[in-house]
Amino acid sequence: MASTDATTDSSLPEGSKRDSMLPDRLRPSPFKEFWGYFCENRGAIVGLFVFVAFILIALFADVLAPHSATEQYRDALLQPPAWQDGGSTRFLLGTDAVGRDMLSRLIYGARYSFFIGVIVVVISAGTGVLIGLLAGFARGWVDTLIMRLMDVLLAFPSLLLALVMVAILGPSLINAMIAIGIVLQPHYVRLTRAAVMQELPKDYVTSARVVGASRLRLMFVTVLPNCLAPIIVQAALSFSTAILDAAALGFLGLGAQPPTPEWGTMLADAREFVLRAWWVVTFPGLAILINVLAINLMGDGLRDALDPKLKRS
């Protein structure tokens, strides 16, 4: 029957009329669409700019910093910032108790913060996504075991758990990063597992099974790319959590050790001068605040742009 119909019809597929009315430029690519949604959120743009600036400062610290981060200028102890009485343009943001330039230390500190953020996100997201995929695919007792373990990890206050781990591993920046990575990892496991369980019953997964895709292929090629949106958002947000936690550990003396110009450690060193020299505590605190705020704003924008439920179509 109607085979002539069928041939004429297949040379002109349905929607081809709509195609001509809707040229390609009106159908944005996924990235352009994402960027459009991202740009709607002002805070996200500001956050992105601050974050990019922060990365650039970290990258070009050697060029930007006027002094070495650790050199002590004995002739200028606790010198106030340039615009205050007694300040000089030699040390724009003043010096600390042993005469080190605050501005240079803050600039080098950006390096550490960025480093901490990246390493912690890689550790926690890498292991968390793998374990989450495993739990989501395996189900049964493997799933139960993994999830109860993660529940136990989540039941501890995160900083306390990190403290305990640092106490066991010994205080250093690397150990602090490992501890924070382990503390943040259960969030990724839960998120990935939930996303996997949502995707698994969909027909495209079944059809990949029908054509014989292997377990690993199903996990990493078929399902994982469709679970990435919430994971990316979580990665952005835990970047700031990592910086904050590392600063807290540094402040407690369990993270980066002096004379490392890490912002939390700088705060800890300056504790006794809070009343006498406001700049030694204020500037590292401000640096942490601005940084974390910028990343959180950016993360919010990412979530708005990547979450299909928030899109108006």
Partner: peptide
């Protein structure tokens, strides 16, 4: 066998991998 039997699903919006 896979090469000899294949399936087309009901929902065309769920059966193609969006990525």
């Amino acid at each position: 066998l896979r090469a000899s039997v294949q399936i087309v699903f009901q929902d065309p919006f769920g059966s193609l991998n969006p990525r």
